[in-house]
Amino acid sequence: MSDGKNQDRAGNILLVGVGGQGTILASKVLSEGLVRAGADVKMSEIHGMSQRGGSVSTHVKFGPAVYSPIIDEGEADTLVSFEKAEAARWLSYLRPGGMLVVNDYEIRPLSVLTGMAKYPDDVIARLREAVPGVIAFDAGAVASRLGNAKAQNIVLLGALVRCMGLGYIDWEAVLKDTVPPKSYELNVRAFEAGRAWGTGSPQAG
């Protein structure tokens, strides 16, 4: 539930990944929840040529009044990366002291598959050194155990909600209105599993 205090809150959330990973649906659910809590919300994403397996980003900004829809370098409160090397690509967008949620999952681009580039080693360990308190886990594996790996986007959304302290929003109700009815139950479980990640709650397993 929102109150005056929550309405005054502001934040910049950058969701990044690889085209086709479901960043857009996660951002849609996130924005809808923030709107319902009474915030001014702007969300910006890029379509077209940037999809097709390319690097993608969605910017979500909220607060009492939001102007520019774009998050600048050094301004994201939380960076959610759906792929681990993408976290490194966008890390400079995180503000000092910002939080990083990263899917411990590797998608090798064609440049790596054809031997023209190398996929970096020890990505998660190096991200942990750079950002204290990184939340890193295989969201696809969590979603798979719940029934469908594709729900990884909502697992990551759950982790983000805990990170940003957005628990005052009724996310179950938001999911009800934003995801297809037949995947609602799964998405609620995925959301809760993501939110509980690292808290020792059995839901996280």
Binding site: V18, G19, M49, S50, Q51, R52, G53, G54, S55, E73, G74, A76, A85, E86, A87, A88, R89, L91, S92, Y93, L94, R95, P96, G98, R108, P109, S111, V112, A117, K118, Y119, P120, V123, R126, L127, E129, A130, V131
Partner: peptide
């Protein structure tokens, strides 16, 4: 913001 020293591979469409 933070830097990790990790060089991400190019990921064009």
């Amino acid at each position: 913001g933070p830097t990790s020293g990790v060089t991400p591979p190019p990921r064009p469409p």
